[in-house]
Design a protein around this nucleic acid. Sequence first.
DNA 1: TTTGGAAGTGACCGGTCGGTCACTTTCTGA
DNA 2: TCAGAAAGTGACCGACCGGTCACTTCCAAA
Lengths: 210, 210
Amino acid sequence: MRRTAILDAALAVFAEHGYEGASVDEIAFRAEFGKGTLYNYFPGGKDELFFVLFEERVAAGLHRVIAHALPDGVDLSTPEATRTAFHGFIRALLHFFLEESRDTMLMFMKEGYRTRLRVEHEAGFAEHFAGVIDAVARPIQQAVEAGALRPLPARPVAHILMGNVRGFLMAEIDAECDPSGHFEPAPFGTADQAADFLTTVLFDGLLARD
Amino acid sequence: MRRTAILDAALAVFAEHGYEGASVDEIAFRAEFGKGTLYNYFPGGKDELFFVLFEERVAAGLHRVIAHALPDGVDLSTPEATRTAFHGFIRALLHFFLEESRDTMLMFMKEGYRTRLRVEHEAGFAEHFAGVIDAVARPIQQAVEAGALRPLPARPVAHILMGNVRGFLMAEIDAECDPSGHFEPAPFGTADQAADFLTTVLFDGLLARD
DNA sequence: TTTGGAAGTGACCGGTCGGTCACTTTCTGA
DNA sequence: TCAGAAAGTGACCGACCGGTCACTTCCAAA
């Protein structure tokens, strides 16, 4: 499938150089097609490539992880069950981005903010973002109603949760992009250790309990 | 002071368009100088402007807030005192970025990741980042040793804390850049409400307590 | 008033990049 | 076999941008 090959190449180039730094020539070269062919498949050019990638790789990947790790009917009736469920979710997110599709993560990290700047696609991006947050907020709301979580508004909590995962991934990029060692040691350890750590901080809280 | 005028203009343009989108012509135009003058003051051009701004505005501002809100000798002997101290710190950070210097925040948010990509200045950027994290980690370590916080490693906790502030600011940008209303309502409320919310999540934890 | 250097300037240069389109190659079905 | 359509191509174009430098303006000291 030509389309997929072009998207793969575009993802790799966006992940490596960011949106501005990516050149359509390089994308076409890596996909082993002429630039004209690329424009046959994506008349909108660079812009359309970025949007489609965000839609089909980033947003779709996130929804897949959410559906798998926090399925309808997951037990959220007690604090312990809720903690376990979200611990698994955080771990699944980290594994997805770090291992399954690293390029997706890099594009997501480096260019996340850009989605707010492109007026043409603003509505589309906003829809995807809101969809992800909503999908995470739903089980949170459920757990709040069951008395398993503090009575906090669900969407802000979902923002916080996703923001912390994002923060961990940023730190990973730091450590990776820094051969001189200024950022080492990697602040969170492995993906599993990071999931444990994030879960402890977010669900148990930083304050000591007797 | 010419230098300051140029830096002010550069900060405004970087905040508005990001690093790639900013043109040296526009910076010179806004500073009301010829482009040549700009190169007299900053021979390194765009790159040097960005680095100096990051150094003198972003990093210096963060250190000022830290020194003011978490001074040496602040009481971190009990969970309650620690919670109060960091609540004040989070509030001070949000106020600094949202009210005192919005452009600084925007540049910081939009281009934070870029600092990892510019090899020439990598060491300088890394030093500033590490310095900020260290300054936050120091009181955290103190509180951990006093038994006020869980026995978690201080630097990762500092990362988490700063990452959450960053996440809130990102959400603010979203809400601000979205006239069509897809992101509304602003997920965290005012800066003070956001500080309360973040403190609750991070220090008390999400799980319900009987 | 003169003068020499410091400060300021913007037209210009080389290079890059997104996008186009006239042309070539490949496919298909009659 | 062949003709016409579909798919593929890359040289080229115009726009833009960072950085330069020969020139002008300013100013302070003599």
